[in-house]
Amino acid sequence: KFNKELSVAGREIVTLPNLNDPQKKAFIFSLWDDPSQSANLLAEAKKLNDAQAPK
């Protein structure tokens, strides 16, 4: 279960257009550290992506 959630969340995070590479890497490392938090980490990444969207 975690492997699928981890890969789905990881793929989504790397495609978020408004995150820079260090931010993406930080989220990916957090996913590896605790795969059970993949849904929460993906939600946080999406929030940050939205907040950094060009206005």
Rank of each mutant, 00 (worst) to 15 (best):
P35S: 03
Q52I: 04
K47I: 08
L42K: 02
F29N: 06
K46S: 04
K1V: 13
Q37F: 04
K25L: 14
E5C: 14
A45I: 02
L31D: 00
S38F: 14
L16N: 01
K24P: 00
K25H: 09
E5P: 10
F2T: 09
F29G: 04
L42N: 02
L19G: 00
D33E: 13
S36Y: 07
N49D: 04
L6D: 04
L19P: 00
N49Y: 02
S38P: 02
A45C: 04
A9S: 06
N49F: 02
D34R: 03
G10D: 04
G10I: 15
K1L: 12
K46G: 02
E5I: 12
N18Y: 15
R11M: 12
A53Q: 08
A51R: 10
A39I: 08
K46T: 05
A45T: 01
Q52W: 02
P22L: 14
N40I: 11
D34M: 06
I13G: 00
L31Y: 00
A53M: 08
N20Q: 06
L19S: 03
A43H: 05
P54K: 09
S38Q: 07
E44K: 10
A43I: 10
S38N: 05
S38I: 15
N18L: 01
L41M: 05
A9N: 04
I28K: 01
L31G: 01
G10R: 13
L16W: 03
L19R: 00
K47Q: 08
L31R: 00
S30T: 07
L6N: 04
D33Q: 14
Q37S: 06
A26W: 15
W32K: 03
A26G: 08
E12A: 10
E5A: 12
L48G: 00
V14M: 15
S30M: 14
L41W: 03
S38G: 12
I13A: 01
S30L: 14
R11W: 15
Q37L: 06
A26T: 06
R11F: 12
K24A: 02
P17F: 03
P22Q: 15
R11L: 13
V8A: 14
Q23M: 04
D21W: 15
K47H: 07
V14F: 13
K46A: 04
A45D: 02
K55W: 06
L19Y: 00
P17D: 04
F2D: 07
A9E: 08
S7V: 14
N3F: 14
S30R: 15
E44R: 08
K24V: 05
K46D: 01
K24R: 07
T15L: 14
P54I: 09
P54D: 08
K1D: 10
I28V: 05
A43W: 08
W32T: 06
L31T: 02
D34V: 04
S7P: 06
I13K: 00
N20F: 07
S36H: 06
V8T: 11
K46H: 10
Q52P: 02
A45G: 02
